[in-house]
Structures are given as structure tokens and as C-alpha cells.
């Protein structure tokens, strides 16, 4: 175990998230009912994804600035963990939709499928999927690192219109859009009361630390692979 204190911190924070997240009191709201507790899990996946993509983006820029191959490995590992978190966020969101928007807000499946936030998130994830397709299509290591670093910057920039800007411009059922009466996105101070913040912020940190841990494992595997390749050659 290398530098293990923050890994233990991640475990402790997630234990706290699950216990307090299920047992601590939450605001009583119609339609949402107990599903409001999904905030500690579903929203944290997207927060984690965003943080992973930011780290990946920084390493891509660093690669282009320095041409050090390690940075390419970093960028790729963080992007892959970010994509996994995005898929988990999408799946949990789909679960949440079936019990809140569909039965209680009387939305048809068609309305949910037209939902701009969902389409935007799908586009963003597909752009990142294309990043991995692009990576695997190169045989030359330097070319792969360079082109995929440039593409990663493009993919990161595309996140902003697709999941942050467009759903706010057009109406959306998702909390945070002008069409919904729940106001501005996730970070609105009126949306979440202080009892939920006490659990939510540690939850974000906990899930993010776990993701960073998994990303570092991937990085170390890749570095080992590179080393053994060099030894074999």
C-alpha cells in the first residue's frame, strides 16, 4: 500500500455516506419522497466524473507541453475511470427517472427520451467513448499519445455545452433547468438544505477519493506493463 491515509479516509467517508445517507433525516418533499437520498449516490457519480475528466484534461495539456509519456498514461487512466462513473451516473439516473418523473410527474416515455439533459450526457459520454476508440486505432505510441491528448482536450471542452449549458437554455425536467420548478442545478443553495449538505459534501469527497484510488491502480498497471515491455525488448 502506498500512501494509504487517504484510502482509509475514502473508506471512512463512504461508511459515513451510507449510514448517514440512509438514516439521517432528509426534507420531506412530494414526488421525491425518500428518493431524495439518491443525491448522495447519483449526483456524486457525476461530480466524480467531472473531477476525473478535469484531471485527465490537465494531464493531456501537460503531455502536449512536455512530451512525457507518463502523462499520457495518467490522462488515459483518469478518463477511463471518469467514463465508468459517467455510465454509473447515467444508470442510476435512469432508475431515479422511473420512480419520479414517469409516475408522479406523469411524463410519457417520449418526453423523458427527449430530455435534453439525458441527451447531452449521452453525447458527452459517447465523445469520451470515441476517445478510447481513437486511442486503440494507433500503432505508433507517440502519435497515439499526441493525437489522443488533443482529442481529450476537445472532449473535455464538449462537456460544457452538452451537459451544462444546453440543458439550461432549453427546458428540462432535470432539476436545474428553466423548465422545471426546482430551480437551478444541483448546487443551488435553495435546493439542498443544511442537513443534506452535511452528508453530501463528505460523500462527494469519499466517492472521488475512491475513484482516484482506482485510477492510480490503473496507472500503476500501465507503468508496469511499459517497464516489462522495455525489459523484453
Amino acid at each position: 500500500m502506498r500512501k494509504s491515509w487517504w484510502k482509509i479516509l475514502a473508506l471512512l467517508l463512504l461508511i459515513y455516506t451510507i449510514t448517514a445517507g440512509f438514516l439521517w433525516k432528509v426534507p420531506r418533499l412530494p414526488i421525491l419522497n425518500e428518493t431524495i437520498r439518491n443525491l448522495y449516490f447519483h449526483v456524486c457519480m457525476w461530480f466524480g466524473m467531472m473531477i476525473m475528466f478535469i484531471i485527465s484534461f490537465i494531464y493531456s495539456i501537460k503531455y502536449l507541453a512536455s512530451n512525457k509519456y507518463v502523462y499520457d498514461i495518467y490522462a488515459r487512466s483518469y478518463a477511463s475511470v471518469g467514463t465508468v462513473l459517467g455510465i454509473l451516473g447515467y444508470a442510476t439516473g435512469a432508475m431515479w427517472v422511473t420512480v419520479t418523473w414517469m409516475p408522479d410527474q406523469h411524463q410519457s416515455l417520449g418526453a423523458v427520451l427527449k430530455e435534453p439533459k439525458l441527451i447531452g450526457a449521452a453525447i458527452a459520454l459517447l465523445i469520451y467513448a470515441a476517445y478510447f476508440v481513437l486511442r486503440s486505432s494507433f500503432t505508433d505510441m507517440d502519435k497515439r499519445a499526441r493525437v489522443s491528448a488533443v482529442y481529450n482536450i476537445f472532449a473535455f471542452v464538449m462537456l460544457f455545452p452538452s451537459i451544462w449549458i444546453i440543458p439550461r437554455l432549453v427546458g428540462s425536467l432535470h432539476p436545474g433547468s428553466p423548465g422545471s420548478d426546482s430551480g437551478n442545478p444541483a448546487l443551488n443553495k435553495d435546493d439542498m438544505d443544511s442537513t443534506m449538505r452535511v452528508v453530501f459534501y463528505p460523500a462527494v469527497i469519499g466517492w472521488t477519493l475512491l475513484s482516484v484510488w482506482i485510477a492510480t491502480l490503473r496507472i500503476r498497471i500501465e507503468l508496469l506493463k511499459e517497464k516489462s515491455l522495455i525489459h523484453a525488448a
Binding site: M1, A10, L14, I15, I18, I214, L217, R220
Partner: peptide, 20 residues
Amino acid sequence: CLIILFGLFFYVFTIDRKLS
């Protein structure tokens, strides 16, 4: 959920140790 969490962490932990 806690059991799942512990299981997950144990798994990640063993991978970490193997890698080390």
C-alpha cells in the same frame, strides 16, 4: 450496502497490495 462497500474496498485493497 456496508457489506458491499467493505467487499469492494477489500478487493481494491488486495489489487493495490499485489501491485505493490
